[in-house]
Each structure stands twice: as C-alpha cells, then as structure tokens.
C-alpha cells in the first residue's frame, strides 16, 4: 500500500503531482476553455501542477488570436496569467510543434519544449493525469 504521510512542517512534501494534458484546439470545442478554468481553480490548492500541450492543444498557445468576429471570448491572454497563479511548468511536445510547423516564437507564453520521450517520463511520475 502507498501510505500518504502528512508532513506539516513541509507542505511542499504533501503536494500531489498533477498534470493537465491539453490535446484540443481552442474554439472548435469547449475542451480548451474548460481545461483552463480547471487549471485556474485547481491552482488554489497549491499542488505541484504542470500543464502539457500536445497534438492540436498546441494551437491554444498561438500568438495573435482575435475572436472579435466570432463573438466568443478570446481566452488566450489568460495563459499568461498562469504565472500569477504560480502555475509555472508549461510544456509543449516537440513532435507536435514540428508537425504543425510551429516554434516557440509562435507562442504567446514561455514554455519548455520537450520530446515525447521526456514527456512520457514526466507522465510516469505524476499522481494524477487530467486530460482535455
């Protein structure tokens, strides 16, 4: 059995490793917005959070989004607010980026670009994986 030992002296030691995995483009479906809201609300619980963007999820971070003519909310600026919520581990999968002809300069927020092998390794270390 995995015993969870509470360590009152060191709250960081109690933090669960939670990874959000985003694989859907924005606006076409509600997944991206839902994920963002869950990340923002979940940030209140001060866990060890990371957010991964792969497949079409990469498109959520594309610069210059303008939804004025669509009459839906452009939620992309909120990705830059993640830092103020102390959600600082943002990763993109290199293979997904290359497949879509994107580089980090095309994205509206600083991210760490990791290979699928590196992301697979991180996934293995998580307590919770949440998919959107």
């Amino acid at each position: 059995m995995n015993e969870i030992v509470e360590d009152a002296e060191n709250p960081e030691a109690n933090a669960k490793k939670i990874m959000y995995i985003n694989r859907r483009a924005p606006y076409g479906t509600i997944y991206a917005l839902e994920a963002l809201e869950v990340v923002l609300i979940g940030a209140m619980f001060e866990q060890d959070v990371s957010v991964v963007f792969m497949d079409d999820g990469i498109f959520q971070l594309k610069k210059n989004q303008d939804t004025l003519a669509l009459d839906v909310k452009n939620f992309s600026p909120a990705f830059r607010a993640l830092e103020t919520y102390e959600v600082e581990k943002l990763y993109v999968e290199k293979e997904s980026m290359q497949a879509r002809g994107l580089s980090c300069e095309d994205l509206l927020v600083p991210v760490l670009e990791l290979s699928s092998i590196e992301i697979a390794e991180l996934m293995e270390q998580q307590d919770v994986l949440l998919n959107f």
Binding site: R23, M54, D55, S116, I119, A120, E121, E124
Partner: peptide, 12 residues
Amino acid sequence: KTSLDTCLRLVR
C-alpha cells in the same frame, strides 16, 4: 483520429 499515434509516441 490521431489518438492512437499520439499514444504510441508517448508510451514507454
């Protein structure tokens, strides 16, 4: 869909 491809890419 590409779900299977992504899975096979990320599976250890």
